[in-house]
Simulated assay, not measured.
Amino acid sequence: MLRLAITGAGGFLGWHVRTLLRALGRPEPIVVSRADLTDPAAVAARLDGVDRVLHLAGVNRGDPAEVAAGNVQLAAQLAQGLRRCATPPRSVAFANSVQAGNGTPYGDAKATAAGILASTGVALDDLLLPNLYGEHGRPFYNSVVATFCRLLATGDTPEVHGDRELTLAHATDAAARLVGVPAGGSWDPAMPPLRIGVGELARRLTGFAETYRRAEIPPLRDRHDVRLFNTYRSHAFPAHAPLPLPRRADARGELVETVRAHDGGGQTFCSGTHPGVTRGEHFHLAKIERFVVLRGSAEIALRRVGDGDVVRFAVAGDEPVAVDMPTMWAHRITNTGPGELVTLFWTNELFDPGRPDTYPEPVELPALVPGQAVVG
């Protein structure tokens, strides 16, 4: 199994890389921090004998001169460490940009950085990445998708100043390409692009948000719709959870609308759970999953992969609500009542034993303190 090292582990793409490695059951990568990069000897010590280095550290926004200098400096620092390795890595995968060499300070700096890394003699996988989007991107920094999602999640309206076409790829697809794993599960290292205008992107995300505020699942016609919706949900959680469900009552009793999925089916199933028993302790990379307790009481607990904080919801069948599992969050449900817990589960796709998109991960990590990172 390849031994990996990574720079930029704490960034947006770095988190998606580490989460994918978690899903694959791979060892945690060796992390080269920005503090390490200032010391060539420390870099060499960390990289000596590894198989592949993922160079993800970079500067995307800010003063143009600082952005340019920062990207060149980071590559130069890594290169100095590589030259000092007694046993150099077999390859370096560089998270470059399709803007490399386009005449802008950022693009020219990325091209210069690639040249610096190539000069070390270590095989360079120079990956020209398009705009990336995905769960937990940093608004007003990583991508316009993250910015629009955050605005919608906080009740604001995205504004489009000058429409143009974007070419987008999901961060997990880019992670698969960087790590060097074949297509499988919910990732594709070919990075199938989404080509969409900024105005259409704003309209699509706005439609998703408006539908989801009613606890309904919007039309999700392809893999990019699913991933855009999951990206929006990552910005809406946990502030907008649980979701209240429409209830209807007449002389016969009550009816609760648990799932309204537009243009989609998915799979629905129910479970009975004995007192004190827990189900779950796993996460999904792309699957949308909804829990609705119909009888009994339970605690639903969730933790974002790579974090230590646990989010908890007390739910009961007397007041049914929907709790949707964010992608890349470990989750579980525990029967906290004296009797049987009856829970309805819904997912947006039929279960495929060959590609279950379900990866074991405990919610509770006793050795951690709140806010402490657990990956890398």
Rank of each mutant, 00 (worst) to 15 (best):
L2P: 15
L2E: 13
T7R: 06
T7P: 06
G10R: 10
V17W: 05
A23P: 07
R26E: 15
T38V: 10
D39E: 11
G49D: 14
V50C: 15
D51R: 05
L54E: 10
A57G: 07
G58Q: 13
G58D: 03
R61N: 13
A68N: 05
A69D: 12
A69F: 03
L74T: 12
Q77N: 15
Q80T: 09
R84A: 15
R90Y: 01
S91G: 08
A93N: 08
A93E: 06
N96H: 09
A100R: 14
G103H: 10
T104D: 11
Y106G: 12
D108G: 06
L117R: 03
V122H: 13
D125N: 12
D125A: 13
D126Y: 05
N131C: 07
L132F: 03
R138I: 11
R138D: 09
F140A: 14
N142V: 08
V145I: 05
G155D: 05
V160N: 06
V160S: 07
H161S: 14
R164L: 07
A169Q: 08
A176E: 02
V179P: 02
V181N: 03
S186P: 02
M191P: 11
R203Y: 01
L205P: 08
T206H: 01
Y212Q: 00
R213Q: 02
I217S: 01
P219K: 00
R233M: 13
S234V: 06
S234A: 15
F237A: 10
F237G: 04
P244Y: 00
R248G: 01
G253M: 10
E254M: 07
A261F: 15
H262Q: 05
Q267S: 13
S271H: 04
T273P: 07
T273H: 09
H274M: 10
V277R: 14
R279Q: 12
L285M: 09
L285I: 01
I288Y: 00
V292F: 02
V293P: 08
A298S: 10
V305D: 05
V310P: 11
A314Y: 04
P320T: 01
D324C: 02
M325R: 06
H331G: 04
H331T: 06
T336A: 15
G337Q: 03
G339P: 10
W346K: 01
G354D: 13
T358P: 00
T358Y: 02
E361A: 15
V363T: 07
A367C: 03
L368A: 12
L368V: 11
Q372C: 02
